[in-house]
Simulated assay, not measured.
Amino acid sequence: MRGRRWRVGAGLAAAVMAVALAGCSEDGGESTGGLTIGLLLPSRAVPRWEQSDKPLIEKRVKELCPDCTLIYANAENDAGSQRQQMNSMITNGVSALILDVVDPKALRSSVRAADRADIPVIAYDRLAEGPISGFVSFDGGRVGRLQGEALLKGMGARADDGGVVMVNGDPSSPNAAWYEGGARSVLQHKVRILKSYNTLGWRTENAHDHMSAAISTLGTNQIDGVLAANDSIAAGVIAALKSARVSPLPPVTGQDADLDAVRRIVEGEQYMTVYKPFRQETDAASAMAVALARGNDIDALVTTSVDSPTSKDVPAVLLDPVAVTAETIGQTLVRDGVYTLDQICTPKLRPACDRVGLTR
């Protein structure tokens, strides 16, 4: 990744508004209309795609372009399905595509097909390969560093040469290596990485199998912390630790601020998660897609550039993630309206919420 790195805030908000205004006709009417934007998300295994990203993009596209139509497909973590979905959208003549790619290499030919059809593609959350027109994501290296720093803090005195198991993401996703690299940059020379696994599909059950294997090989006394790449993986890790009757549980990281993970943090089973303010990401992607669908440039909307394996200087927005522990849930997730206290603090968790200061 390279290029200038600016924080995204009021400047991007102003630029997004400019895009909305640019869509109005000179006689003061509504936007040009007749535009269709395709949204392709990778799976339902990670709750955020269906619960946060999809509705937020639908809402923002409609705000920026009332006459635009958004069509949606979920690949269920299958690259072949996503290729068929994308090719169908291209055949139907969409005006722009927002693509959260399952497998960049497998979808490269479809990205090229979109380019030949003059359909711009915005790579969303994961960097796609081929002639993409823009990229919106959170800084993956920063995500991994936040996880590594929190894990060391959670390990306390054991952070000095303690033993860590890494349960990483799916290697077909470019973000998996990005996260892992960031985490390793913090953990190397500080702790011993006892085992490292790749988790196909980011699936909870696969993470459970990895953690069970680590426990079987290493025993329980050597494992002082677990670097879990996201909250779905953390769920499998924690289930395996509990099945092995590990007590107390070692600190376990996560990512995505899934509601179940937030509840696990309150309960003391998961140490932290990484919150990625989804509205910032969905707003940026929606603005870029609407601008490109209308034939406008996106210079005012981007903040940096990145290189993919196939393209140089892709216009990009890289946003800042936020580490969340039990002590900071209120000032991050609750403050931003991601979850209410009632959603987090079920009757069973009410005493735990009181202990960590999540009170009405």
Rank of each mutant, 00 (worst) to 15 (best):
G141Y: 15
W178N: 14
S247V: 11
V143N: 07
R184C: 04
G23M: 15
M211Y: 05
R60M: 09
G201V: 04
P347K: 03
D125W: 08
Y271D: 10
N87E: 15
Y275P: 14
A235S: 11
C24N: 06
G163A: 07
D354I: 12
D258L: 02
R279E: 10
P171C: 05
A300L: 11
P248T: 03
S212D: 12
T328Q: 00
A10N: 08
S25R: 15
L333G: 01
G337F: 13
R5A: 05
W178R: 13
C345Y: 03
V46H: 13
S25M: 09
V8G: 08
L349R: 11
T199I: 00
T204A: 09
L241G: 10
D78C: 10
V290Y: 04
L292Q: 07
S196C: 09
A75M: 02
G236T: 12
N296A: 15
V324W: 01
Q331C: 06
L41T: 09
A183T: 09
Q82T: 05
Q222G: 04
Y339S: 05
A229G: 08
Q255D: 13
L146Y: 12
L292I: 08
P42V: 00
T220D: 03
R108W: 01
I233S: 11
Q51C: 00
P55N: 00
G29D: 11
T340D: 01
Q280S: 07
Q82N: 02
D139E: 09
Q51T: 14
G3H: 00
V167C: 03
L318G: 06
A326W: 04
I265Q: 04
A15F: 02
V46E: 14
P309Q: 14
D100V: 12
A287G: 05
R108H: 07
E281Y: 05
L292K: 03
A15Y: 09
A323S: 14
E58F: 08
R83Q: 13
E180G: 12
A113D: 09
E26L: 12
E267L: 06
P42R: 01
G337W: 00
S95N: 07
R48H: 11
G201R: 05
P120T: 07
R158H: 14
L40G: 02
S95K: 09
Y197F: 15
Q255G: 07
A285M: 04
G225M: 06
A289C: 06
A150V: 12
T346I: 05
T340E: 02
Q255K: 07
A316S: 15
S232N: 10
G11S: 14
W6S: 14
L146C: 07
K195A: 09
I37F: 01
T346C: 06
G357A: 08
G162Q: 11
G169E: 02
M272I: 11
V314I: 13
K62Q: 14
C68I: 12
P248S: 13
G93F: 01
W178E: 13
L187D: 03
A289S: 09
A117P: 13
D313G: 15
T303Q: 11
F278W: 07
G162F: 05
P120K: 04
M155E: 13
T340R: 06
T199S: 00
E149Y: 08
E50T: 15
T346A: 01
A79E: 04
R142T: 11
A73F: 10
A257K: 04
A177W: 03
